[in-house]
């Protein structure tokens, strides 16, 4: 099975490489709605593959994928590693802790070094906003943003959309138009929140964000989200509740008095969840602080909690992104130099 064998829905996307005319995936911002849908649709085949006992294809055979993680990560790194390996790529992980950055090498020098090793795709996570774009500017292969500072985490937003779409379809609902999604937690420091606001609003959902004032970014309305400080009001009638981790390192009294006070105001309990629409879906990008932002009975409730599905969809989305972004380099028909529409 090759990805190009599965043609996108007729008429829905521009042909060939024009369906996704970007070399890199740096953020949701700047992508068209049909480009987001294209990646979601491309991921469906990998969802199917990942549910079989034999999960290996050779789409990326012979290609080298470097996961360069300058910030600690467990699940995203693992997800990208599995995605690359299932597609047949040679996957190498570079951890910041063992890299020469500790020896004073600049980010640009690291980028040039990675480039000289002739990677076919580089996945980057970095603690500074804009760092991934900076590296992308210095390398010749596709770059995927696995999270840059407080800026974007595009594959997280895409996997959330895919998990949500699967759940909606299972209920006989289609797509996102009119859907009300409430995102609650540390919106200020969250790249997941930014990417999700951009992605969900582009797909047609209404997005509410909820946080105490200290954790709410300025002018968030300009991104298309409706801000709330009162969690109960933000939950009222919501179809989907997406909880974000409260980062313990910020719990030093600077932003929030205490975890238990935060739980009192913003913890998702079953009582609170009852204010949302009946059978509202619950999401969390993980890792969770059970008993702080989310109670276990809500997080583990079968039928409404999508938290495990999100992880599953993550691998499929990352496979889709790796496949699509390497098509030009692999010379897939319609994706070569003739489609010179790089944005």
């Amino acid at each position: 099975m090759t990805s190009s064998a599965k043609a996108p829905a007729a008429g829905r996307y521009p042909a060939g490489g024009l369906a996704f005319p970007h070399r890199d995936l740096l953020g949701i911002g700047g992508l068209e709605t049909h480009e987001l849908l294209f990646l979601l649709d491309e991921a469906e085949q990998w969802v199917e593959l990942n549910r079989r006992s034999s999960k290996h294809v050779d789409v990326l055979s012979g290609l080298t994928l470097i996961n360069a993680f300058f910030e600690n990560s467990t699940r995203t790194l693992l997800s990208f590693e599995i995605a690359g390996k299932r597609l047949g790529a040679d996957v190498v992980n570079m951890h910041a802790a063992t890299s020469s950055l500790k020896k004073g090498e600049t980010l640009i020098d690291t980028a040039v070094t990675l480039n000289a090793m002739r990677a076919d795709a580089i996945v980057i996570r970095h603690a500074s906003s804009g760092a991934v774009a900076l590296i992308a500017d210095k390398v010749d292969c596709p770059v995927l943003n696995a999270g840059d500072g407080q800026h974007e985490h595009p594959t997280q937003a895409l996997l959330d959309a895919l998990a949500l779409r699967h759940a909606l379809r299972a209920r006989g609902q289609d797509e996102f138009a009119g859907l009300c999604v409430t995102i609650c937690g540390d919106i200020l420091h969250s790249r997941v929140a930014r990417s999700n606001i951009l992605c969900l609003t582009a797909l047609g959902a209404r997005v509410r964000v909820c946080a105490p004032p200290a954790l709410m970014p300025a002018a968030i309305e300009a991104l298309g989200a409706e801000p709330f400080h009162d969690f109960d009001a933000a939950l009222c009638g919501a179809d989907v509740v997406m909880m974000l981790r409260l980062q313990n390192e910020r719990m030093d009294g600077q932003f929030i008095p205490s975890p238990r006070e935060y739980h009192r105001l913003y913890g998702l309990t079953s009582t609170r969840l009852a204010r949302a629409a009946p059978d509202a879906l619950v999401m969390h990008p993980g890792p969770m602080n059970r008993g702080v932002e989310i109670d276990s009975d809500v997080a583990d409730r079968a039928g409404t909690s999508l938290i495990v599905n999100q992880v599953e969809m993550g691998v499929a989305i990352r496979m889709a992104c790796l496949d699509v972004l390497t098509r030009r380099g692999r010379g897939v028909a319609g994706w070569g130099d003739e489609a010179k529409q790089w944005v």
């Binding site: 911002g29 906003s129 804009g130 970014p217 300025a218 002018a219 968030i220 991104l223």
Partner: peptide, 15 residues
């Protein structure tokens, strides 16, 4: 400076 641009870019900002 706190505002739409800083929020979009995810940059530490102050009023």
């Amino acid at each position: 400076t706190a505002g739409e641009m800083a929020t979009r870019l995810g940059l530490p900002s102050a009023p």
